[in-house]
Design a protein around this nucleic acid. Structure first.
Lengths: 188, 188
DNA sequence: GTCTATAGTACGATAGAC
DNA sequence: GTCTATCGTACTATAGAC
């Protein structure tokens, strides 16, 4: 993908995670880059195209990041810590929330293809967390009730919600939820 | 409050929880009720007024609902079940998400007074859940690591996130998270 | 690939009649 | 309290020159 396209997606992603999809415009993007609205439309004709590209790129980027984590840490706890660090950085860089939460909140207003890609992205995260929990349980370093899929769903939902709660109650709210997730995996 | 005002808030709340605050307009509200835009503006001059009224009314309504639960059930588990039922109904009535999640997702775009009221509302829910968990632990029917405040934060974040995840993965995703929350309180 | 200019629409909000 | 009409602005999107 061209540098310009990447640059547009960078800015659009930032706006999506700070202001929401409906609440940012082509004008916002063009202003921040210093190009015209028409140029954005040249690269992404409609806002539906833009949303789809945002989800698709984020999906690929995340797959890459998760693969890196899996390769760099054989220990399940280290992997979880690294993932949490990834999510934590979302909040730390300007009170952002995760892309999935932002778009799910406006699910009724996005195109069908974007909905489908968003679902794929969520499935991807869930599968990775599930695999991590299966490993952690197998290595007997993580304990939790029920099956790994369900525990993965809980962690995924909790981290997403915690990023949003942090906007109303500050970053401490997020670290609190993280601490509790870890405590459960240690003691339950 | 007048019936008309309540009616407007009913419709606006529905739209907020299905489409998000930026993605619904005075026109949407007036169309659904069958009155003019100007009438909406008469009752709520600006959209900031509307958002503030939405949060304030929701806060009061929730306080009332939580008090009812507390009065009707002395058992902590019954109280939790009743609260979860309350949240579950949000999803069941048209794939809605909770009001707090919807507005937190657009936190950067709402007025300061609405932000403050939203924070108060979140604090209220958190306090009620905390009290429930303190009771549950005291009665030795619920177990969890750490302190009740943290566990309340986890549950609050997880339920909020689960409502959103349900949009991408269906209602089963929400019930899964609920089941896991319960399992943790039973076994951990 | 980028621009200026603009179409066409929708938005929040207000004025003034009834 | 509700209406019609309208203002001024912002939006998505396109046309056409360079």
């Amino acid at each position: 993908m061209s540098d310009r396209k990447e640059q547009i997606l960078d800015v659009a992603e930032e706006l999506l995670q700070t202001r929401s999809f409906s609440a940012f415009s082509y004008q916002d993007v063009s202003d921040r880059i210093g190009i015209s609205k028409a140029t954005i439309h040249h690269h992404f004709p409609s806002k539906d195209d833009l949303s789809l590209a945002l989800v698709t790129r984020h999906h690929m980027s995340l797959v890459s990041a998760l693969e890196t984590i899996t390769k760099e840490h054989s220990d399940s706890w280290k992997q979880l810590e690294a993932y949490i660090q990834l999510v934590s950085q979302i909040m730390q860089s300007g009170h952002k929330i995760c892309l999935t939460g932002s778009l799910q909140a406006e699910f009724a207003t996005i195109s069908n293809s974007t909905k489908q890609e968003l679902a794929n992205l969520c499935t991807c995260i869930h599968a990775w967390l599930t695999r991590l929990l299966i490993e952690g349980r197998k290595q007997q370093v993580m304990t939790f009730p029920g099956n790994p899929e369900d525990q993965a769903s809980l962690i995924q939902a909790a981290l997403q919600g915690a990023l949003q709660q942090a906007r109303a109650h500050g970053p401490k709210q997020f670290t609190t939820v993280v601490r509790q997730i870890k405590a459960i995996l240690k003691t339950s």
